[in-house]
Amino acid sequence: MTLQIEPRFLDAGEAALVVEFGDTVDPAINDRVLALDAALRADPPSGTCEFVPTYRSLMIHYDPLQVSRDTLVATVGGMLIGLAEWRGEGTVWSLPCCYDPALAEDLDEAANILGLTRDEAVALHTKATYRVYMCGFTPGQIYLGGVPEPLKISRRATPRSPHPAGAVSIGGGLGTVVPFVMPTGWYVIGLTPERLYAAERNDAFLIQAGDLVQFDPIDLATFRNLTQRAASGEIVARKRSA
């Protein structure tokens, strides 16, 4: 583990400060990121604009005409002293996921590379509980840690053609769910009917960093039914407190 108790303060230009707790994907590092993020959101220092938690660092966007870099570093440094352990809201999401070959475009390819049968790969994927390390890249997209060892697959050397919205993918030893149609360097092993981003919903973004996710296998008929319900604004994932 490469947890730095004393974080590094790095500059991303004169209007963004990176508070870096480590350089690896690690729950203990991510805990510190989310703890600082929670503390900053509860009491935003003057001059700060927004906070972006990632696997291993927190980016603080600020207005340097309102707060100086040195003042901000001192304020954040003060908050880090005695920062409470991050416990999160403990939300566990059960995301319906269809692994039918009609939708799981890369499941056989990925299973073949990993030396697994399709059913073994699905069983491994549905058995695990994943931690949402961060959201990013596209609106509502979640990055998942906790992929079982036998499912850890490298990213593709070159991206594949665009996948549909709701792609459940693995790559680079991690998992992701992408609510937009886009090309990817990952392997699409399933499709969720849930909309992680829906502008018209009160909660436009369903899942946030620190939440836990499990995948609930559904058949093609259920997928079609839930897709229609999700399109009408219903949240089809199930949610419970840990």
């Binding site: 230009g13 990176v18 350089d23 994907v25 990632t54 696997y55 291993r56 660092s57 980016m59 990013g136």
Partner: peptide, 9 residues
């Protein structure tokens, strides 16, 4: 390991 991107990075 991915981190945040500021405009102009």
């Amino acid at each position: 390991v991915s981190d945040g991107i500021a405009m102009g990075a």
